[in-house]
Design a protein around this nucleic acid. Structure first.
Length: 584
RNA sequence: GCACCCGUAGCUCAGCUGGAUAGAGCGUUGCCCUCCGAAGGCAAAGGUCAGAGGUUCGAAUCCUCUCGGGUGCGCCA
């Protein structure tokens, strides 16, 4: 139930009809036409730019074309007034019953209101978090985690078939460093006094790994050469780190369907080799020399022949190496094979949620996906900017225990999952985020999480009051959907109906743009509407939700309140935030 | 040197993929409330959308350049 889509279709039908009738030329592209709410509500309920964008192709001046369309739109059911404004805007005013109809739909559809089949089941792979399995997650990881999860929710709501995936970087040198660090903790667990040299991971979180190893194998690994103990220690450590990360994620109610191991790209079969062979056969891999980067001089630069992927053929600035000097694969080589694999598993749309420090990586990855899918796969990289942790405006000190960063778990333990999730989504992903630990648990209007959740709770509270006044009132959504909504005549009530009718459009646009923050901002506005109406009831008793002398009006208003609460609940669910029945 | 992201009110940020007179919160100022419809309300002031060109009916939004901030720049992941 999307009024704006509905009118877009109606307009397309009108254009088609006028074309058939010969009153408009062939070849008009109705796809350029936008139907949207006017910025200024006094202009009407819907506005379209149809006359302006089509005037050139129609070989008519915009006003004349607008007049033609106005005559047709005027015949449409539910349209009460159509006018032309400015350079050729067509403003449409609708019968209030149409907005009431959206409220009824919202009440009937409940938790699926705003959902659509726009994605038509297209398979989308969202890869997010993908933190190295070498330690606990920090707050920056948390932002990507929350963003990716909300985006996945959003895409599912828009009718896409979403796979939530985590790429475990368990193949690089960093996991060997992890193993060495864990081995030290193992010796420590056996009673040795250890010192952790520079370059290894110092965090206490590896102590349990050492203890677990000691318990499992006793001192069997203590005098062996590194080559013999490293694989076992590494696998144990990775496994325990992943358990820890999964626990951290579960605390934020984030679960991935696929955990993909980087090492599995080489064992048991080497997919990286076949991917490179495939690219080589297509002349996209060659052996050549690379000029050293201009800016920061590299001390040990060695000019040498290397195996390069021709990413410049797909818009990258320079070709990229696939093999290190020791012959092993670069991270990029693995990643090409990995993305090829995601595509081959059926996802034609790939989304990578990355930290902002990966910005330089995007071009080459897009080039790789284009090459490896023959241009049929689409990759969108969403870069999440840094999070600055504050407490009352002051930067938060790092925790030594975890190894010089604030862990995600510490933050979630302190302020809760809802506050973390909402605040991380109450900002565009590419803007840096100030996260104030004191502010986000404050019960005031300054705190957006509280404000939105409170609107939902207030809605429930109002319903409880209505039941106190009319104990036999049926407040089930299905019943409220049949209420007499014509009694919602106050402008503030009408505004809320309009706001609700925009929700499906917001969900759709947010999903298309891969921008979950739009939902958060919409909810803030909707909450604000409800609070404002409530406050009006203080000065103007005839606007109170519960009218003790008027059962019918109370019922109508309960429909409105339940509609708002329901939309807030749906929106918060998309963000992965709870919608409480009361604030405590 | 190059690439990517960002630059909107004093501050923190929105701005619905190019629409009409650029919005909100905080802060400031002024009224009201502080008799549980509690976790405040109403209103005002505040802008060269970093700057300059360009594209077109129309630009905060798209293109080019300049300035300013951030990030990254074989064999790290």
């Amino acid at each position: 139930m999307n009024l704006f889509d509905d009118f877009q279709r109606r307009l397309a039908a009108i254009l088609a009809r006028l074309t058939v009738e010969g009153r408009l030329p062939d070849g008009l592209d109705a796809g350029k036409v936008v139907v949207e709410p006017p910025r200024d509500p006094s202009h009407g309920d819907l506005a379209t730019n149809a006359a302006m964008v089509l005037s050139k192709d129609a070989k008519m001046n915009p006003r004349a074309l607008a007049d033609l369309l106005v005559a047709e739109l005027d015949k449409e059911p539910g349209v009460t007034e159509v006018s032309v404004a400015g350079p050729g805007f067509i403003n449409v005013r609708l019968d209030p019953s149409l907005f009431a109809g959206v409220l009824r739909a919202a009440l009937r559809q409940g938790e699926t209101f705003g959902h659509s089949d726009r994605g038509k089941g297209i398979k989308v792979n969202v890869e997010y978090v993908s933190a190295n399995p070498t330690g606990p997650m920090h707050v920056g990881h948390g932002r990507g985690a929350v963003f990716g999860d909300a985006l996945a929710n959003l895409l599912e709501a828009a009718g896409y078939d979403v796979t939530r995936e985590y790429y475990i970087n368990d193949a690089g040198a960093q996991v060997d460093v992890l193993a060495r660090s864990a081995h030290l903790r193992y010796r420590e667990a056996l009673g040795e006094t250890i010192a952790i040299p520079e370059g290894l991971y110092p965090g206490d979180y590896l102590k349990p790994v050492g203890a677990a190893l000691a318990k499992e194998v006793g001192n069997a690994l203590i005098d062996k050469p590194e080559a013999e103990w490293l694989p076992l220690v590494r696998d144990t450590a990775i496994s325990m780190m992943m358990d820890m990360i999964r626990t951290d994620l579960a605390q934020l109610n984030i679960r991935h369907e696929v955990f993909f191991s980087e090492r599995s790209l080489q064992k048991p079969t080497d997919i990286i080799a076949t991917t490179i062979a495939d690219l080589t056969a297509r002349d996209l891999v060659y052996v050549g020399r690379l000029a050293p980067p201009k800016g920061a001089p590299i001390e040990d630069w060695e000019d040498r022949e290397q195996t390069l992927f021709r990413s410049t053929a797909y818009g990258d600035d320079v070709d990229r190496p696939l093999l290190k000097s020791d012959g092993s694969y670069t991270y990029f080589a693995s990643d090409i094979a990995y993305h090829a694999d995601k595509y081959n598993r059926g996802s034609s749309v790939l989304i990578d949620v990355l930290g902002a420090d990966h910005g330089g990586y995007v071009k080459r990855m897009k080039a790789a996906v284009a090459a490896v899918t023959g241009g049929r796969g689409e990759l969108d990289c969403k870069l999440c900017q840094l999070v600055r942790l504050l407490r009352n405006g002051e930067p938060v000190k790092m925790s030594k225990r975890a190894g010089d960063f604030v862990t995600l778990r510490e933050v979630v333990d302190e302020v809760g999952s809802d506050a973390v999730r909402f605040m991380m989504l109450f900002r565009k992903n590419d803007a840096t985020l100030d996260f104030d630990l004191a502010k986000v648990i404050e019960q005031s209007k300054d705190n957006a999480v509280f404000y939105v959740q409170y609107a939902h709770a207030r809605g429930q509270s109002v319903k409880r009051q209505a039941l106190a006044a009319f104990p036999d009132l049926d407040l089930a959504s299905a019943t409220l959907a049949d209420a007499d909504l014509a009694r919602l005549t106050d402008p503030a009530e009408q505004d809320i109906l309009r706001r609700i009718s925009q929700f499906p459009r917001i969900v759709d646009a947010a999903a298309q743009a891969h921008e979950p923050h739009r939902i958060a901002f919409y909810l803030y506005e909707l909450a604000s509407d409800l609070h404002a109406l409530w406050n009006k009831g203080k000065e103007a008793p005839h606007l109170r939700f519960v009218m003790e002398n008027d059962r019918e009006l109370t019922t109508s208003r309960m429909a409105l309140v339940q509609g708002v609460a329901g939309v807030i609940a749906v929106g918060l669910a998309l963000l992965g935030v709870s919608a409480p029945d009361e604030m405590r």
